[in-house]
Design a binder for these strands. Sequence first.
DNA 1: GCCGTTTTCGGCCCGACTGTTTTCAGTCG
Length: 577
Amino acid sequence: MSDNLAIARVLAETADLLELKEANPFKIRAYRNAAETIANTGERVAAFDEARLRELPGVGRDLAARIREIVETGDAGVHRELVAEFPPTILELLHLQGVGPKTAATVYRELGIGSLDDLERAARAGQLASVRGMGPKKTALILRAIDERRRHASRYLAPEVADTAAALIARLQEAAPGADFTPVGSLRRGAETCGDLDILAVGAPPSLMDAFTGDRLVERVLGRGETKASVLLHGGLQADLRLVPPGSRGAALQYFTGSKAHNIALRDRALARGLTLNEYGLFDAATSAPVASETEEAIYAALGLPFVPPELRENRGEIDAAAAGSLPRLIERSDLRGDLHAHTTATDGRDDIETMALAARAAGLEYLAITDHSQALAMANGLDERRALAHAARVREVGRRLDGITLLAGIECDIRPDGTMDLADDCLAELDLVIASVHSAFNQEASQMTDRLRRAIACPYVDIIGHPTGRLLLRREPYQLDLDAVLHDAAAAGVALEINSQIERRDLNDVQARLARDRGITLTIATDAHARGAFSLLRWGVQTARRAWLTADDVLNTRPIEAFRASLRRHRRPAAR
DNA sequence: GCCGTTTTCGGCCCGACTGTTTTCAGTCG
């Protein structure tokens, strides 16, 4: 998995460096497209031969050879040569707000500036003004951007951005009561993290820009026009507001929701039909006569497509599937009948069994698995066999007392570093459901970690693998793992894989969950709740599942309780060994 | 460098905003 990202990085860097050299822009785009494609491919591209590589969209003869070269040697000659032409830190410049390839190339060529530090020194010394096209304002902007880069993270968890969006939109709505506001961009597509916040305002007066740029969250205004403004919020998040007239609502929603790759593919499709698409509508290319603009449905329809849900708009095959009428009916939050992963005060949860059960019921769930930690997690007061069974008895007792919610007595059992389970088989066999998770020794080699998970899957009492890659968004990389091998075993054993809904986990991620489903594995969507308020987190797991093209049938906990029980691994296969 | 219901050659998505330009280039999304 991670080597897909490594390959993509070499290709993307090649594109960046080609840009510095002012190479053919279409060649640059080709490298960038291929990088994107590979980063979003679920299977390990390293295992593909040239013919298989060329089946990937945007990968032709040359790029297939480049990719094989990267797989075999760890780098591509073309990349190595480009790297040698510039200081290794040159790409820092390219990623700075307001600095693009032209500026970076110019300051490097004329002033020998090859790093952020160089650039800052030159700007402070007033040397940038000697470069054509650079004045005092540009210099000040660059100094500011450097400062901001050092102070702020570059990406934010999407649920946090969603909160910010809601607060901001509430105030904008007061300023323009008749207008219609929608968060668009990556937020609407259900992404895990956001680089910025995009808000679309339909039917608002131009004075709305005052409310936006003057909002109390705004640290400074990056740019402001009649229909578009950008601001930097306190904390470093950039927010963009776009104003469009009501007649362009659908076109603007479509355009600003993206993704960029989806929109480019869609415009391609428009051109092939003699149409042109922009944020104001779909038009006849020859006569400029409007064809569609008021709703997204009308625009897709005019392009011969059904509505494509925003979560699918990543140019991962959704346009072909739409054209073929084979888009999935995506899972929705209301399809979920149960939550399968929750903690209580018995270990590191904040609420007791009954409080959690009532909160789950209030959240509209029909069943809840209580899955506290096992003994290896000493700092969470993890349960040994004796406590686990006593806890299970209490869960069942509470379950018998409560109406409208069925409780399952489970455990989140640690997978020890050697792959053995943290609790004895006869204890696990007594429980209704077992999640097996890695919480320690994250730095094992890929082969060791892969064996560890395969051993866990081989244990007949393991029903679900919890947060299977261990990543923490923006904080911790997934552990090294041969996911292909793990998927193979999970499919063969009938073990489900979790989509953990914690906002910093979303683990499995969209690409991995889609691949797992394609391999015949059933997924679960679970909160990993540690308090009564956590059931609302299911929303984020559902978003990841939708981005993975999952339907309700692909997810175990959409089933009614009896069907759910029957489809657990322990009830499907003999538990003897 | 990719790609083909116009095409194996000649195309390749499109518009807003800013700063420096005296008519437009660079950046961004």
